[in-house]
Simulated scan of single mutants.
Amino acid sequence: MEHFVGQARLEWWANQSTCLEMYDIDITVTVGSVGNWEGTGRHASVLDTTQREGWDFLMEMDPHFSIAFAGEDRGRITVRVIEAEDGTLTLVEAPGWDGSVSVTFDLT
């Protein structure tokens, strides 16, 4: 795949067996000469208030998602997602990300 335009699904996995949320996106992917790829896109539909709160929470916790393309049951590529003010998403392949993140919750 040198160039792909279509839909994909971002999945935020808490661990190997628990996917906390999935978001459909419209995406354009290009592959560089060394095989790494970058994508740009937008949410396929406008997020409602609850979805937006969940998205913002997950992005703040850790902006790494798995991305799944049509026909995939589960995302196989890990990407770091950056959201611009206008809602544009930039996705950068993150092959070295090991899935670990340190999060502290204040429950007081």
Rank of each mutant, 00 (worst) to 15 (best):
81 V>G: 05
86 D>A: 12
30 T>W: 01
46 V>P: 09
105 F>N: 03
25 I>T: 00
22 M>A: 03
53 E>Y: 08
91 L>A: 15
87 G>C: 05
48 D>Q: 06
32 G>D: 04
18 T>Q: 10
21 E>K: 11
4 F>H: 11
85 E>S: 08
59 M>K: 07
79 V>H: 03
82 I>R: 15
92 V>F: 10
70 A>W: 13
91 L>V: 11
51 Q>W: 00
83 E>G: 08
91 L>S: 08
24 D>P: 12
11 E>Q: 01
54 G>T: 07
9 R>D: 06
61 M>F: 05
92 V>H: 14
25 I>A: 00
37 W>C: 15
41 G>I: 03
7 Q>W: 14
69 F>G: 02
77 I>A: 08
54 G>M: 07
61 M>E: 04
18 T>E: 07
99 G>K: 02
49 T>C: 06
37 W>G: 14
25 I>K: 00
51 Q>V: 01
24 D>I: 04
107 L>R: 05
47 L>G: 02
65 F>K: 05
80 R>E: 14
68 A>V: 14
88 T>S: 03
36 N>C: 15
45 S>Q: 09
38 E>Y: 12
9 R>G: 01
78 T>H: 12
78 T>W: 13
39 G>T: 14
16 Q>Y: 12
64 H>S: 09
66 S>L: 07
93 E>M: 12
62 D>L: 00
79 V>C: 04
63 P>Y: 02
79 V>Q: 07
